[in-house]
Simulated scan of single mutants.
Amino acid sequence: MAFPMPLIVCGKVPQVAIGVREGLKPAYDAIHIMMSVESGINEIPSLLQGYRPSANDSENLGSQRYGQKPVAIVTGGGYSDDDFAKMRKACEGLSSVPWLRHDLSNSFDPSNARPKLGLEYGKQIAERVKNCLKELAESGKMNNDGVYYY
């Protein structure tokens, strides 16, 4: 697949989402960044089918380069199990891309202070996302619907 590979990112904190977007470059392009469950439910299905989102979302911090279908959906730690399930259900049968979730149980080194939510934290998260995507590619799972933790 040609670079950068398009991703959908679902976050809750704009500064973290911007850090993730920047940290994913140049290999990945966060084409659309959602900041709520409702946006995810309404917009991810269209994006997975290769369509532009129907609403003009002023909160969208993504590149908005909608030329290719996304290869994965990345959700941040602010989404509960219920939130995540609602977004996945809205997309049932529309695509076979991996869904990445933040593994909150493995997020922080207990010997260090919890990182401040901001750009640098977002870039740290992006590194974990890139590692997860690399593992999925190496194991041939990039075209498999499933839930994978980073």
Rank of each mutant, 00 (worst) to 15 (best):
Q49G: 09
Y66V: 03
L24Q: 00
I18T: 10
M87E: 11
G122S: 12
H102I: 00
R21T: 09
K89A: 15
S111L: 11
K123T: 01
P4I: 05
N131E: 15
A55Y: 06
V9I: 08
A126F: 09
G118A: 04
N60A: 08
M87N: 03
R88M: 14
V13E: 13
L24E: 01
P26H: 03
A137C: 08
H32A: 15
R52S: 13
A30L: 01
D57W: 06
E120M: 11
Q64Y: 09
V37T: 14
T75R: 01
A2Q: 13
K123S: 07
R128M: 06
G77P: 03
I125L: 08
M34D: 07
G118L: 04
K69G: 05
Y148F: 13
D82M: 11
Y28W: 11
G78E: 01
F84R: 15
G50E: 09
G93E: 04
F84H: 11
C91E: 00
N60I: 05
D83L: 04
N144F: 05
E138G: 06
P53I: 10
V20M: 01
L136Y: 02
Q15P: 02
Q68E: 06
F3W: 12
C132I: 03
N106F: 10
Q64L: 06
K134P: 07
L104I: 15
I31F: 08
S107T: 15
A2E: 12
P6I: 02
L61P: 00
